[in-house]
Design a protein around this nucleic acid. Structure first.
Lengths: 145, 145
DNA sequence: AGCTAATCTTGAGTACTTCAAATTAAATAC
DNA sequence: GTATTTAATTTGAAGTACTCAAGATTAGCT
């Protein structure tokens, strides 16, 4: 299931190393993982690696576009395998679970701000915050915007 | 121009202290400021305060809803005076400048994801990334998604 | 197999933020 | 106006996420 990981590295001009394949492999299994999670997944298989190396690898992969970095309020950065669609994320307020969301309402209405202040808009990120099904039962909270 | 700051604190059940008024006053002047910026603005007027106190105050103000915390990739958190509309932000890739953007395209299309994975959606955050007018002249970069 | 540049390892260090205990100040009651 | 009570601030320490840099190692090429 992790076929082509080495090919993707080569095509991006990166050398194929055990660490990079392991990080990519982890992201195949865990769609949204932070650096620490990835480290704990691969550490048993790569005894000599470290959390710094994982950050290093993730930076490299992000730089060449194999991986996408997602930062959300008050949590460590998450990484996901880059898919070239413009999907977004929904995050659970309670447990922090992250799910992908296809771009809202048909086309991509969110890609054009009504007033860009003269900015050249390059991309738009949409993050939904809410309560995941598992947490909905436990509490019904304030619905402030 | 900073009339009503003390009233807002009282209405939120917070005691009116010099530090809180100063932080709110700073946010009136500087619409998007991080904790460090706020500290440097108020430090000359409140010699005994500290960056930790500023964080403390900002947390209190955020908790009661007087201030909104905005986190963006790779930068310290920014704070702004809460306005109860659902406006969003556009951030410059180069200089980090932040501007407000009214909610895209008329109503609030972004508040309903096409597939919520069963989440109870509470709010949506839209962040636009681009190049501000000042930086546009210097470089025309890659326009990746 | 040998060379070279890229990559990893290791340790230290930085930025931002949080925590906790003692001090201080604001709001209320007197 | 003063005392009381409760909340807020100060101060120091610590934690988390991440970056930097120097030397050791390894992938990919010839």
């Amino acid at each position: 299931m992790r076929s082509g990981l080495t090919d993707r590295l080569k095509q991006s001009g990166l050398k194929v190393t055990a660490g990079r394949v392991a990080v990519l492999g982890t992201l195949v299994e865990v769609p949204h993982a932070d650096a620490d999670t990835i480290y704990h997944v691969i550490a048993p298989h790569l005894a000599t690696t470290s959390i710094q190396s994982v950050h290093n690898i993730l930076n490299d992969l992000t730089r060449v576009g194999l991986v996408r970095r997602v930062t959300s309020a008050g949590s460590p950065a998450l990484y996901e395998l880059r898919v070239d669609d413009n999907h977004h994320h929904i995050i659970c307020d309670h447990c922090g679970k992250v799910e992908d969301v296809d771009c809202v309402i048909g086309a991509a209405p969110c890609l054009e701000p009504s007033n860009g202040h003269g900015f050249q808009v390059r991309k738009a990120e949409v993050t939904f915050w809410g309560c995941c099904p598992d947490c909905v039962e436990s509490a019904v909270d304030d619905l402030v915007q």
